[in-house]
Design a protein around this nucleic acid. Structure first.
Ligand SMILES: NC(=O)c1ccc[n+]([C@@H]2O[C@H](COP(=O)([O-])OP(=O)(O)OC[C@H]3O[C@@H](n4cnc5c(N)ncnc54)[C@H](O)[C@@H]3O)[C@@H](O)[C@H]2O)c1
Ligand SMILES: NC(=O)c1ccc[n+]([C@@H]2O[C@H](COP(=O)([O-])OP(=O)(O)OC[C@H]3O[C@@H](n4cnc5c(N)ncnc54)[C@H](O)[C@@H]3O)[C@@H](O)[C@H]2O)c1
Lengths: 209, 209
DNA sequence: CGTTTGATGTGAAATTTTTCACATAAATGG
DNA sequence: CCATTTATGTGAAAAATTTCACATCAAACG
């Protein structure tokens, strides 16, 4: 089945492919992609098999073809527009990041309740939060990022859904509910760090035994 | 088995518990935690069972006890010290975030190769990268965050490992290898967004069918 | 031009993770 | 103080995911 992990791996393969292409590689083997994505070669082939992606028996895969195929699956055939709500530390980091454009992801506007943060003339305009609904409707935005304090996250989510946004990445440390036919991914950095702390301690313990 | 997802859930439970405690709740039921962490109630109880955490039959769990037990598992009994390498957009957002301190995570210093970014006098000092090894050794640092450009990430990782760091969160869009007895978590924001794009499109497709 | 070699592709097996089903115990209430 | 209610705890079943084993095909080579 095509699940979250599978798509994460597909993104990683694609990422590696683009790097390999930049090095003028033409062919790639499942083993190579496995190394890059930190999985097994069988996993790579199984993933491809799931999407009907075929290589050349004995000859590996042609990088150009693979990039085209994975790009199509991941929706890289067109620029995907995002907005960011909450232009604080995280929000600003995202707006300032030039790397997204390379991968057909475009942050088209930021929104904030604080008028001091707003700047309609900026390269990526930062607009008052109350204008979000209209902006999303007029510009056909499908995706949003929530980087407001946790207390405001649920409210922002609801407004985004009303406005017609379908996919959301949430940085606030609270698990937002995923409504039907929508995608909400809760990314909690503290949780990620706690995970690392746990397993680093665990590794140490098993080492001692 | 205690795996990554299980610990992520445990963090989420703990997060919810702290919120409930702030609202003066004393007891909590597996159902409540399930709502907060977006899982099933059985999953919550199964997770607890794995760690030998017991509640009161019919009476749910005492919040104070649960917080104590989950905190112990997640290493919240002491402050966990982190350093951040690469004080750009992301690195600075992390240094500026006051929320970590609430959860016993302390960022004690930043490091950068660019002298213009350094500031020894800041609340959280930003030091030259070449001082990292000594600093880590002298201050007994176990954890690090990599927020340098992808081209520098592998090099930074190796230096961190040499210095004795055991657990690392990597923001660079490249899959760093996890050496034995160490924990390396590769967090790729583009990949996360691509995931959302894929599943939002998918949800749309199934909707139409 | 047949044989060997080496990588892919994929059902089946193994493993992991989640869910089910229900035994168990504590509170409630008649 | 016994019956009932209700939430926990967990072995067993189910489902999901990964790994294995090997058939398959294409290139290379003698
Ligand atoms: N900065 C970090 O490193 C970090 C780490 C972990 C988690 N987080 C989480 O990410 C989120 C953002 O963090 P941050 O450090 O950027 O916060 P921040 O306080 O720097 O910025 C939040 C921004 O949201 C705006 N805002 C508040 N309510 C709003 C609303 N209803 N609509 C629109 N805008 C609103 C504020 O004006 C502010 O500009 C928070 O939930 C935080 O807990 C951040
Ligand atoms: N900013 C974002 O929103 C965003 C989004 C996705 C991914 N990322 C990734 O996160 C990482 C950091 O992003 P950013 O926007 O903060 O980058 P940035 O360019 O703003 O900052 C990088 C910092 O690292 C420092 N640096 C470079 N080489 C170093 C070295 N060897 N040792 C120590 N410091 C070094 C630079 O001086 C700079 O201050 C990058 O890998 C980027 O691809 C960032």
């Amino acid at each position: 089945m095509v699940n979250r992990s599978c798509i994460i791996r597909l993104s990683r393969y694609r990422n590696a492919l683009i790097r390999l292409k930049a090095l003028n590689f033409v062919k790639v083997f499942s083993e190579n992609l496995a190394d890059a994505a930190r999985v097994t070669a069988v996993q790579v082939r199984k993933d491809f098999s799931l999407f009907g992606i075929c290589g050349n028996r004995r000859g590996g895969y042609l990088i150009d073809e693979l990039i085209a195929q994975t790009s199509a699956i991941l929706g890289k055939d067109k620029v995907q527009k995002f907005i960011v709500v909450g232009i604080g530390n995280i929000g600003r980091a995202l707006l300032n990041y030039p790397g997204f454009r390379r991968s057909e992801i475009e942050i088209v506007a930021g929104f904030d309740v604080n008028p001091a943060k707003c700047d309609k003339e900026a390269l990526i305009p930062i607009l008052p939060f109350e204008e979000m609904g209209d902006f999303v409707a007029q510009n056909g935005i499908t995706f949003g990022i929530i980087s407001v304090p946790d207390s405001a996250a649920q409210e922002v989510l609801e407004r985004m859904l009303e406005a017609g946004i379908k996919g959301i990445l949430n940085f606030a440390p609270i698990c937002l509910k995923e409504p039907k036919d929508h995608v909400v991914r809760n990314l909690n950095l503290e949780t990620e760090l706690e995970n690392i702390i746990y397993f680093a301690n665990f590794a140490e313990q098993t080492e001692r035994e």
